[in-house]
Computed example of a mutant assay.
Amino acid sequence: MAASPMNPKSHCHARSNSLPSRPHPLILQCNEHLRRLGSDATSSSSSPIRHKLSGLQDLHDCVEKLLQLPLTQQSIVQESQEKWVDKLLDGSLRLLDVCTAAKDSLLHTKECARELQSIIRRRRGGELELATEVRKYLVSRKVARNAIHKSLGNLKAIEKKCTFATANKDHENAELISMLREVEAVTLSIFESLLSFISGPRQTKSKLSSWSLVSKLMQTKRVACTQETDENEFAKVDAAVQSFALQMTIKSDNINSLQNLLEKLESHSQGLEEELESLFRRLIKIRVSVLNILNN
């Protein structure tokens, strides 16, 4: 009896076009990435968002390598008429859409922050020009938050449908299907955390007096100080700009404090953007790999 190409010493009755009974090291590696990311996602003291995105890149890099294995490709071809393959392709599109939404939100916020920084640096237009730019920033953030909340609502609906059927499957194929389902679920979960992070705390719809709003913002700042700095840059800037808009004073201390927060936000956004762009390219490569397997 022929030995398995991925395990020359193994002798079993598995079909030649199925994955070997002993998990391939890449499957074990993918499962280890999933375990780590799942632990990060549920931890009460979660890792910084960039760390999670970097972990996602490692996971999808592992999946991409797994898809290059001949026996993995044969298994997918064998299952090409099954619904889970269509769900896999649909899921890859969903991940690309959510990743694009996150990138757009980051870019939009970063550009608005940069415009506000520019006005602060020049300080030529006085309070009127500064007030106009502050209002523009607040409006742009409201638009971004609304778009994010819509995406988060869509994500909730998607997560409920994120299941692949594994009944009556070979053990090896069932394991592959289960792992790919977990990859999509964990990726969606981290994208959800990222979108919530970019959005910042939800604003109440009721109209607040200037004093109650300032009090609320100061309380938010105190709570933020107890959390990780990496996870509060957007919320800190939102609170600072709101407070600045209410007080509308161009005292040097206030201006410098706001400018420093905006600079940190821009740097932080740039880092997240780079991580997302790299992840986006990996997601595209995985989708192309699956399509090529099915079309060849």
Rank of each mutant, 00 (worst) to 15 (best):
H13W: 05
A3K: 12
V85N: 01
V237D: 04
S199V: 04
T249H: 02
E233A: 08
S206P: 02
L152H: 02
D170P: 12
V63K: 01
R282Q: 15
H171A: 15
G91L: 12
F280Y: 15
L26G: 03
P23T: 08
K65A: 15
I190R: 07
T226K: 13
Q247H: 08
W211A: 09
S21H: 12
E274T: 06
T132P: 02
D40I: 13
F191Q: 11
A174R: 03
I190W: 01
Q117W: 00
T204D: 09
N260V: 08
Q29E: 15
L261M: 11
R15K: 15
M6V: 14
S151Y: 00
Q73N: 02
D238W: 01
S210P: 05
L155S: 10
L138G: 13
L56C: 05
L88H: 04
A113G: 11
L95I: 04
I27Y: 01
S118G: 03
S18M: 10
Q219F: 07
E263I: 13
E233V: 14
K216Y: 07
A131K: 12
N296D: 10
K207T: 01
H171W: 09
K65N: 15
H13M: 15
E129Q: 15
S189T: 13
L93I: 09
C30S: 07
K136E: 06
Q270R: 09
S43T: 10
L283P: 03
V139Y: 08
T42K: 11
E228A: 14
K110I: 04
F191N: 08
F191V: 12
P8Y: 02
V290S: 09
N7C: 15
N31Y: 01
H149W: 03
S105W: 01
D86W: 00
H108A: 15
W211L: 07
C12D: 10
G125T: 11
K87H: 02
A131L: 09
L89A: 04
S118Y: 01
G55D: 04
N254E: 03
C12E: 08
G153Y: 01
F234M: 04
S215D: 14
L176R: 01
R181C: 00
V288F: 02
K264E: 08
L116E: 02
V183D: 00
S18W: 05
L195N: 12
L155N: 08
D61M: 13
R287F: 01
L107F: 10
G271K: 08
Q117H: 05
L291E: 05
S267A: 12
K150L: 09
S210C: 06
E175M: 05
L294G: 06
E64N: 08
G271E: 07
G126T: 12
K264N: 10
K161G: 04
R35S: 14
L291Q: 12
N168D: 04
E263M: 14
P201V: 09
H171I: 15
L176G: 03
L194D: 01
E111V: 13
G125C: 06
N154T: 12
R50I: 01
C162E: 00
L130V: 11
L93H: 03
S193Y: 05
A174F: 00
C112E: 09
S252T: 08
E127G: 14
C99W: 00
R123H: 00
D90G: 14
E182R: 00
G200Y: 03
Q68S: 11
F197C: 14
F244I: 07
G153L: 07
K236M: 11
Q219Y: 10
L71Q: 03
K236N: 10
D238F: 04
L28C: 13
L152K: 07
H33F: 05
